[in-house]
Protein backbone atom coordinates (compact mmCIF):
# COMPACT_ATOMS: atom_id res chain seq x y z
CA UNK A 1 0.00 0.00 0.00
CA UNK A 2 1.48 3.35 -0.90
CA UNK A 3 1.60 6.07 1.69
CA UNK A 4 1.00 8.86 -0.77
CA UNK A 5 -2.62 7.86 -0.96
CA UNK A 6 -3.00 8.69 2.70
CA UNK A 7 -0.81 11.74 2.86
CA UNK A 8 -3.60 14.05 3.91
CA UNK A 9 -4.40 11.78 6.82
CA UNK A 10 -0.72 11.35 7.46
CA UNK A 11 -0.09 15.02 8.16
CA UNK A 12 -2.80 15.00 10.83
CA UNK A 13 -1.36 11.81 12.27
CA UNK A 14 2.10 13.35 12.44
CA UNK A 15 0.71 16.39 14.25
CA UNK A 16 -1.11 14.10 16.67
CA UNK A 17 2.03 12.06 17.34
CA UNK A 18 4.06 15.22 17.92
CA UNK A 19 1.47 16.39 20.41
CA UNK A 20 1.51 13.04 22.21
CA UNK A 21 5.31 13.06 22.22
CA UNK A 22 5.44 16.55 23.72
CA UNK A 23 2.96 15.62 26.44
CA UNK A 24 4.68 12.28 27.02
CA UNK A 25 8.00 13.98 27.70
CA UNK A 26 6.65 16.85 29.79
CA UNK A 27 3.87 15.06 31.67
CA UNK A 28 3.98 11.26 31.46
CA UNK A 29 0.96 11.01 33.75
CA UNK A 30 -1.09 11.96 30.69
CA UNK A 31 -0.93 8.34 29.58
CA UNK A 32 -2.40 6.97 32.77
CA UNK A 33 -5.29 4.62 32.06
CA UNK A 34 -7.87 6.81 33.74
CA UNK A 35 -7.05 9.80 31.58
CA UNK A 36 -7.21 7.86 28.33
CA UNK A 37 -10.54 6.39 29.37
CA UNK A 38 -11.95 9.84 30.13
CA UNK A 39 -10.71 11.16 26.80
CA UNK A 40 -12.35 8.27 24.96
CA UNK A 41 -15.72 8.77 26.58
CA UNK A 42 -15.72 12.57 26.38
CA UNK A 43 -14.96 12.46 22.67
CA UNK A 44 -17.30 9.63 21.71
CA UNK A 45 -20.31 11.89 21.01
CA UNK A 46 -18.11 14.30 19.04
CA UNK A 47 -16.78 11.40 16.98
CA UNK A 48 -20.34 10.34 16.11
CA UNK A 49 -21.18 13.82 14.90
CA UNK A 50 -17.88 14.11 13.05
CA UNK A 51 -18.65 10.84 11.24
CA UNK A 52 -21.92 12.34 10.04
CA UNK A 53 -20.18 15.57 9.14
CA UNK A 54 -17.64 13.65 7.08
CA UNK A 55 -20.46 12.16 5.01
CA UNK A 56 -22.02 15.60 4.55
CA UNK A 57 -18.72 17.20 3.55
CA UNK A 58 -17.91 14.28 1.23
CA UNK A 59 -20.96 15.07 -0.89
CA UNK A 60 -19.81 18.68 -1.01
CA UNK A 61 -22.26 20.12 1.48
CA UNK A 62 -21.95 21.34 5.09
CA UNK A 63 -24.20 21.18 8.14
CA UNK A 64 -23.71 23.87 10.76
CA UNK A 65 -27.00 23.21 12.53
CA UNK A 66 -25.79 20.12 14.41
CA UNK A 67 -25.11 21.96 17.67
CA UNK A 68 -28.69 23.19 17.89
CA UNK A 69 -30.08 19.81 16.81
CA UNK A 70 -27.95 18.27 19.55
CA UNK A 71 -29.51 20.55 22.16
CA UNK A 72 -33.05 19.75 20.99
CA UNK A 73 -32.31 16.00 21.02
CA UNK A 74 -30.71 16.17 24.48
CA UNK A 75 -33.73 17.86 26.01
CA UNK A 76 -36.15 15.52 24.24
CA UNK A 77 -34.13 12.52 25.43
CA UNK A 78 -34.68 13.66 29.00
CA UNK A 79 -38.34 14.49 28.50
CA UNK A 80 -39.03 11.11 26.86
CA UNK A 81 -37.04 9.22 29.48
CA UNK A 82 -39.20 10.80 32.17
CA UNK A 83 -42.30 9.28 30.60
CA UNK A 84 -40.84 5.91 31.62
CA UNK A 85 -40.04 4.78 28.11
CA UNK A 86 -37.94 1.60 27.91
CA UNK A 87 -34.38 2.09 26.68
CA UNK A 88 -34.68 0.43 23.23
CA UNK A 89 -37.72 2.56 22.40
CA UNK A 90 -35.85 5.62 23.60
CA UNK A 91 -33.02 4.80 21.21
CA UNK A 92 -35.44 4.48 18.32
CA UNK A 93 -37.25 7.69 19.20
CA UNK A 94 -34.03 9.69 19.39
CA UNK A 95 -32.79 8.29 16.09
CA UNK A 96 -36.13 9.17 14.55
CA UNK A 97 -36.27 12.70 15.96
CA UNK A 98 -32.72 13.33 14.79
CA UNK A 99 -33.45 11.85 11.39
CA UNK A 100 -36.53 14.07 11.00
CA UNK A 101 -34.56 17.22 11.72
CA UNK A 102 -31.87 16.02 9.34
CA UNK A 103 -34.47 15.18 6.71
CA UNK A 104 -35.76 18.77 6.82
CA UNK A 105 -32.26 19.95 5.90
CA UNK A 106 -32.09 17.13 3.37
CA UNK A 107 -35.27 18.16 1.55
CA UNK A 108 -34.21 21.79 1.37
CA UNK A 109 -30.66 21.05 0.25
CA UNK A 110 -31.14 17.86 -1.75
CA UNK A 111 -34.41 18.27 -3.54
CA UNK A 112 -34.86 22.01 -3.60
CA UNK A 113 -31.15 22.65 -4.24
CA UNK A 114 -30.77 25.40 -1.68
CA UNK A 115 -27.20 26.11 -0.53
CA UNK A 116 -26.54 23.98 2.54
CA UNK A 117 -24.56 26.60 4.43
CA UNK A 118 -27.52 28.98 4.34
CA UNK A 119 -30.18 26.37 5.11
CA UNK A 120 -28.27 25.02 8.07
CA UNK A 121 -27.39 28.54 9.22
CA UNK A 122 -31.12 29.24 9.36
CA UNK A 123 -31.71 25.98 11.23
CA UNK A 124 -28.87 26.73 13.64
CA UNK A 125 -30.63 29.89 14.74
CA UNK A 126 -34.19 28.59 14.47
CA UNK A 127 -33.78 25.34 16.46
CA UNK A 128 -31.77 27.03 19.16
CA UNK A 129 -34.28 29.83 19.61
CA UNK A 130 -37.24 27.46 19.39
CA UNK A 131 -35.71 25.46 22.24
CA UNK A 132 -35.03 28.59 24.28
CA UNK A 133 -38.54 29.74 23.69
CA UNK A 134 -40.19 26.54 24.83
CA UNK A 135 -37.91 25.57 27.72
CA UNK A 136 -36.75 29.06 28.73
CA UNK A 137 -33.37 27.48 29.39
CA UNK A 138 -34.63 25.10 32.07
CA UNK A 139 -32.74 21.87 32.76
CA UNK A 140 -34.34 18.44 32.72
CA UNK A 141 -33.88 17.09 36.20
CA UNK A 142 -35.06 14.22 38.37
CA UNK A 143 -34.45 11.71 35.61
CA UNK A 144 -35.48 8.11 36.32
CA UNK A 145 -32.82 5.99 38.01
CA UNK A 146 -32.42 3.71 35.02
CA UNK A 147 -31.61 6.59 32.68
CA UNK A 148 -28.04 7.24 33.78
CA UNK A 149 -25.75 4.67 32.11
CA UNK A 150 -28.97 2.97 30.91
CA UNK A 151 -29.20 1.54 34.40
CA UNK A 152 -26.08 -0.60 33.95
CA UNK A 153 -23.69 1.17 36.28
CA UNK A 154 -20.78 3.37 35.31
CA UNK A 155 -18.22 0.90 33.96
CA UNK A 156 -20.64 -1.09 31.82
CA UNK A 157 -22.28 2.12 30.65
CA UNK A 158 -18.96 3.57 29.57
CA UNK A 159 -18.00 0.45 27.68
CA UNK A 160 -21.39 0.47 26.03
CA UNK A 161 -21.06 4.09 24.90
CA UNK A 162 -17.54 3.71 23.52
CA UNK A 163 -18.34 0.33 22.00
CA UNK A 164 -21.43 1.59 20.24
CA UNK A 165 -19.58 4.63 18.93
CA UNK A 166 -16.73 2.56 17.55
CA UNK A 167 -19.21 0.13 16.03
CA UNK A 168 -20.99 2.96 14.22
CA UNK A 169 -17.65 4.36 13.13
CA UNK A 170 -16.43 1.02 11.79
CA UNK A 171 -19.75 0.40 10.09
CA UNK A 172 -19.67 3.69 8.22
CA UNK A 173 -15.99 3.25 7.33
CA UNK A 174 -16.79 -0.12 5.83
CA UNK A 175 -19.82 1.17 3.96
CA UNK A 176 -17.86 4.10 2.52
CA UNK A 177 -15.21 1.76 1.19
CA UNK A 178 -17.16 -1.27 0.06
CA UNK A 179 -20.81 -0.49 -0.53
CA UNK A 180 -22.28 1.01 -3.66
CA UNK A 181 -24.15 3.69 -1.72
CA UNK A 182 -20.96 4.59 0.10
CA UNK A 183 -18.97 4.97 -3.08
CA UNK A 184 -21.81 7.05 -4.50
CA UNK A 185 -21.00 9.75 -1.93
CA UNK A 186 -17.56 10.20 -3.47
CA UNK A 187 -19.08 10.29 -6.94
CA UNK A 188 -21.64 12.95 -6.01
CA UNK A 189 -19.04 15.00 -4.15
CA UNK A 190 -16.56 14.91 -7.03
CA UNK A 191 -18.97 15.74 -9.80
CA UNK A 192 -22.73 15.61 -9.30
CA UNK A 193 -23.47 15.81 -13.01
CA UNK A 194 -21.14 12.93 -13.84
CA UNK A 195 -22.64 10.92 -11.00
CA UNK A 196 -26.12 11.56 -12.41
CA UNK A 197 -25.06 10.37 -15.81
CA UNK A 198 -23.57 7.28 -14.18
CA UNK A 199 -27.01 6.41 -12.83
CA UNK A 200 -26.77 7.85 -9.34
CA UNK A 201 -29.54 10.15 -8.12
CA UNK A 202 -27.58 12.97 -6.40
CA UNK A 203 -30.56 14.68 -4.72
CA UNK A 204 -31.50 11.40 -3.11
CA UNK A 205 -27.94 10.79 -1.91
CA UNK A 206 -27.75 14.29 -0.41
CA UNK A 207 -31.13 13.82 1.26
CA UNK A 208 -30.01 10.50 2.70
CA UNK A 209 -26.74 11.91 3.97
CA UNK A 210 -28.46 14.76 5.82
CA UNK A 211 -30.99 12.35 7.31
CA UNK A 212 -28.16 10.11 8.53
CA UNK A 213 -26.38 13.14 9.93
CA UNK A 214 -29.50 13.97 11.95
CA UNK A 215 -29.89 10.41 13.21
CA UNK A 216 -26.26 10.40 14.32
CA UNK A 217 -26.83 13.67 16.16
CA UNK A 218 -29.79 12.06 17.95
CA UNK A 219 -27.66 9.07 18.90
CA UNK A 220 -24.79 11.27 20.07
CA UNK A 221 -27.16 13.39 22.16
CA UNK A 222 -28.58 10.31 23.87
CA UNK A 223 -25.18 8.76 24.53
CA UNK A 224 -23.96 12.06 25.93
CA UNK A 225 -27.05 12.62 28.07
CA UNK A 226 -26.89 9.25 29.84
CA UNK A 227 -23.49 10.13 31.26
CA UNK A 228 -25.03 12.65 33.62
CA UNK A 229 -27.86 12.88 36.07
CA UNK A 230 -29.40 16.02 34.56
CA UNK A 231 -29.64 17.58 31.10
CA UNK A 232 -28.79 21.24 30.59
CA UNK A 233 -30.81 23.41 28.21
CA UNK A 234 -27.79 24.92 26.47
CA UNK A 235 -25.98 21.79 25.30
CA UNK A 236 -23.96 21.66 22.12
CA UNK A 237 -23.10 25.34 21.60
CA UNK A 238 -20.19 25.48 19.16
CA UNK A 239 -20.38 21.76 18.40
CA UNK A 240 -20.70 22.37 14.65
CA UNK A 241 -17.35 24.13 14.55
CA UNK A 242 -15.66 21.36 16.50
CA UNK A 243 -17.03 18.73 14.12
CA UNK A 244 -16.19 20.63 10.92
CA UNK A 245 -12.70 21.42 12.20
CA UNK A 246 -12.07 17.77 13.11
CA UNK A 247 -13.20 16.59 9.68
CA UNK A 248 -11.07 19.14 7.83
CA UNK A 249 -8.00 18.58 9.98
CA UNK A 250 -8.50 14.88 9.23
CA UNK A 251 -7.85 15.55 5.57
CA UNK A 252 -11.33 15.59 4.07
CA UNK A 253 -11.57 18.17 1.30
CA UNK A 254 -14.16 20.83 2.07
CA UNK A 255 -15.05 20.90 -1.61
CA UNK A 256 -16.20 17.28 -1.40
CA UNK A 257 -15.31 14.01 -3.04
CA UNK A 258 -12.19 13.27 -1.07
CA UNK A 259 -11.61 12.08 2.47
CA UNK A 260 -11.55 9.07 4.76
CA UNK A 261 -13.21 8.33 8.07
CA UNK A 262 -9.84 7.28 9.50
CA UNK A 263 -8.74 10.86 8.98
CA UNK A 264 -11.78 12.09 10.85
CA UNK A 265 -10.90 9.78 13.73
CA UNK A 266 -7.43 11.30 13.86
CA UNK A 267 -8.90 14.80 13.62
CA UNK A 268 -11.27 14.18 16.54
CA UNK A 269 -8.45 12.65 18.54
CA UNK A 270 -6.14 15.57 17.79
CA UNK A 271 -8.60 18.37 18.58
CA UNK A 272 -10.13 16.46 21.50
CA UNK A 273 -6.77 15.95 23.13
CA UNK A 274 -5.37 19.45 22.76
CA UNK A 275 -7.37 20.96 25.62
CA UNK A 276 -6.42 18.22 28.05
CA UNK A 277 -2.84 18.14 26.83
CA UNK A 278 -2.48 21.88 27.36
CA UNK A 279 -3.70 21.48 30.93
CA UNK A 280 -1.16 18.73 31.52
CA UNK A 281 1.56 20.87 30.00
CA UNK A 282 0.58 23.66 32.37
CA UNK A 283 -0.18 26.12 29.57
CA UNK A 284 -2.48 28.96 30.51
CA UNK A 285 -6.06 28.19 29.42
CA UNK A 286 -6.35 31.71 28.02
CA UNK A 287 -4.29 30.66 25.04
CA UNK A 288 -6.23 27.48 24.34
CA UNK A 289 -8.48 28.92 21.66
CA UNK A 290 -5.61 30.63 19.88
CA UNK A 291 -3.62 27.39 19.80
CA UNK A 292 -6.61 25.50 18.44
CA UNK A 293 -6.99 28.01 15.61
CA UNK A 294 -3.29 27.85 14.89
CA UNK A 295 -3.39 24.04 14.68
CA UNK A 296 -6.24 24.10 12.17
CA UNK A 297 -4.30 26.54 10.02
CA UNK A 298 -1.09 24.57 10.47
CA UNK A 299 -2.79 21.35 9.35
CA UNK A 300 -3.97 23.13 6.20
CA UNK A 301 -0.59 24.63 5.44
CA UNK A 302 1.27 21.38 6.07
CA UNK A 303 -1.06 19.76 3.57
CA UNK A 304 0.05 22.16 0.84
CA UNK A 305 3.69 21.86 1.82
CA UNK A 306 3.45 18.08 1.69
CA UNK A 307 1.86 18.23 -1.75
CA UNK A 308 4.60 20.52 -3.08
CA UNK A 309 7.26 18.33 -1.53
CA UNK A 310 5.84 15.36 -3.34
CA UNK A 311 5.84 17.11 -6.70
CA UNK A 312 9.60 17.60 -6.41
Amino acid sequence: MSFSRYKRELSALIAFCLLLLAVGVAAPSFFAGGNLRDLLINNAPILLIAVGMTLVILVGEIDISVGSQFAVCSILAGVLAKTGMPTPVLFLCLLLIGALMGALNGVLVGFLRLPSIIVTLAMLVAWRDLLRWTTEGAWVQNLPANFQWFGFGQTTGEILIVGLTLLVFAGFAWILKNVRAGRALYAVGSDAEAARLAGIDPPRIVFGVFTLMGALVGLAALLNAVRFSAIPGNAGIGLELKAVAAVVVGGTAITGGRGLLVGTLIGVALLGTIGTALTFLGINPFWEKAIQGAIILAALVSDVVLARFEKK
Binding site: A245, E288, K289, A290, Q292, G293, L297, L300
Partner: peptide, 16 residues
Protein backbone atom coordinates in the same frame (compact mmCIF):
# COMPACT_ATOMS: atom_id res chain seq x y z
CA UNK B 1 -11.91 26.78 6.22
CA UNK B 2 -9.28 29.49 6.39
CA UNK B 3 -11.56 31.94 8.15
CA UNK B 4 -12.84 29.17 10.41
CA UNK B 5 -9.25 28.81 11.58
CA UNK B 6 -8.71 32.55 12.02
CA UNK B 7 -12.11 32.71 13.72
CA UNK B 8 -10.59 30.70 16.59
CA UNK B 9 -7.19 32.31 16.23
CA UNK B 10 -8.27 35.95 16.52
CA UNK B 11 -10.67 35.35 19.39
CA UNK B 12 -8.07 33.24 21.13
CA UNK B 13 -5.46 35.97 20.74
CA UNK B 14 -7.87 38.51 22.19
CA UNK B 15 -8.46 36.27 25.20
CA UNK B 16 -4.80 35.44 25.54
Amino acid sequence: IVTLGTFSLFRGMAEG
